[in-house]
Amino acid sequence: MARADFYLIDKPRFREEPLLLVCELARKAFDANLYTLVLARDGAQAEALDDLLWSFDPDAYIPHQIAGSDDDEDEAVVLIAAPGSDAALRPLVINLRDAAVEGTFDRVLEVVPADPAARAPLRERWKHYQSRGFDVKKHDM
């Protein structure tokens, strides 16, 4: 059964820099040897995440790259896709966009903003994944 996990940003360090949570999720995926696709909201967010994955932890190296920037993207455990790139879905998808992820994958991680006003679209996504038969869970981060 496919899973959808919603990570609610709560801790101050994630409130200040939400992409740090994405880095932590990517590290867990890498440690579990899960090929991951991060669906970035836009090109600027993709670049920011790319930079942060290099620097967020001096002891962690997570092979990653932005989709379309290299021919060897199959080698990168974490692939970051800006809208408009034609990156294929992977078993694990971290979704930073407004729309639910469509297609075939094992698990999706949805990062929920700290601002309650920004959470309305996520309620719709929760219902969407439930209607598709996903096992849906919430995690306070």
Rank of each mutant, 00 (worst) to 15 (best):
A81L: 08
C23E: 11
F6S: 02
L39D: 06
Y35G: 12
P113F: 03
D72F: 11
A82H: 05
H139C: 05
P58F: 14
L19G: 12
R107Y: 00
D70Q: 11
A67K: 05
G43Y: 03
D42E: 12
A81I: 05
A100S: 08
V22E: 07
R13Y: 13
A118N: 09
A88G: 13
D51H: 09
V112L: 00
Y61Q: 13
R97G: 13
G84T: 10
A29Y: 01
L53M: 14
H139Y: 09
A100Y: 00
L122V: 05
A2H: 06
V78G: 02
F30H: 15
D140W: 05
L79P: 05
E110Y: 01
P18S: 11
V38N: 06
A26H: 02
D135N: 02
D74L: 10
V78W: 01
E24F: 05
I62Q: 07
H64M: 13
R41D: 14
A26P: 05
M141Q: 14
L21T: 13
D72V: 08
E16M: 08
K127G: 05
D86L: 10
E24D: 15
R13W: 13
K138P: 02
E124M: 06
Y129P: 01
A100F: 01
V108G: 00
F134W: 03
A87E: 13
W126N: 00
A100K: 02
L20H: 14
V93G: 00
E124L: 07
P12C: 08
L19A: 12
F30T: 15
Y7V: 08
P116Y: 03
L19I: 13
F105V: 05
P58W: 10
Q65Y: 06
P113G: 05
A76T: 08
N33C: 09
F30V: 12
D31W: 08
